[in-house]
Computed example of a mutant assay.
Amino acid sequence: MMYDMFPGRRDFMDFSRRLFDVMFDPSFGNAAGFNTDIRETDNEYILEADLPGMAKENIHLEYHDNVLSIAAQQEEGKDETDEEGNYLRRERTSRSFRRQFLLRDVDEHNIAASFENGVLTVHLPKKEPQAPTSRRIDIQ
C-alpha cells in the first residue's frame, strides 16, 4: 500500500484526522467553556449561563468592584479498569471555567442566584446610579 512507502505517514494521517475532529468539535473555539446571556430590565440584570453536567457545589459566584465572576470546575467521564487497575479506557477530563462580566450600579446585597437543569440564573437588582464626581486639581 502507498502508506507503507513512507514511514510515519499513517501516524501523521491519524494525527491529522484527530486534529480535524477536535477543530470541528462544538466546544472548540469556546475558550470560556460556557455560553451566557445577559438581559436588562428596568429593575435588574438577569444573567443566564449554561453549565450542563455541573454540580451546584462546584459553581462559585462573586461580585466585587462592579465585576461579576463565575468560576466552575467539572470532572466528567468514566473509567473502566481491569482487575490489576490498568485502564482499558479513560475518558475522564477535568475542566475549569471562569468568566467575568462588568455590571455597574448593582445592589450587591440583594443579588440572588439559582441553578436548575444545568442553567445558572443570577438576578442582579439595580441601584440608583452614582453621579460621577470630579474635582479641580491645582497644579503646583
Rank of each mutant, 00 (worst) to 15 (best):
L19G: 08
H109R: 04
A112Q: 11
E108Y: 03
F28W: 15
F20Y: 07
G118N: 13
S114N: 08
E62I: 06
D14K: 14
F115C: 09
D107Y: 09
D25T: 01
E116F: 04
N30D: 11
D79N: 12
R95E: 14
T93P: 02
A72L: 01
R10E: 14
L120D: 01
I137V: 15
D11A: 07
G85Q: 08
K78A: 12
F24I: 07
L19Y: 10
A49C: 12
K78T: 11
A32L: 08
G53Q: 04
T36M: 07
F6C: 05
D79G: 07
Y45G: 03
K78I: 07
R135V: 12
G33S: 06
H123P: 03
E57T: 09
S16I: 03
D50S: 15
F20S: 12
F15R: 13
N86W: 09
N43L: 01
G85D: 08
G53V: 09
N86E: 14
I111T: 04
I139A: 11
F24Y: 12
E80L: 15
P52K: 15
G8R: 05
K78M: 12
L88T: 09
G77S: 12
A131Y: 04
T41S: 14
F28K: 06
F24L: 05
D138W: 01
D138E: 14
T36A: 04
Q130L: 09
A71W: 03
T93D: 11
R18F: 06
R104H: 07
R99P: 03
F6A: 05
A72K: 01
F34V: 01
D105F: 09
L68C: 10
I139D: 13
N58A: 02
N30C: 00
V67S: 11
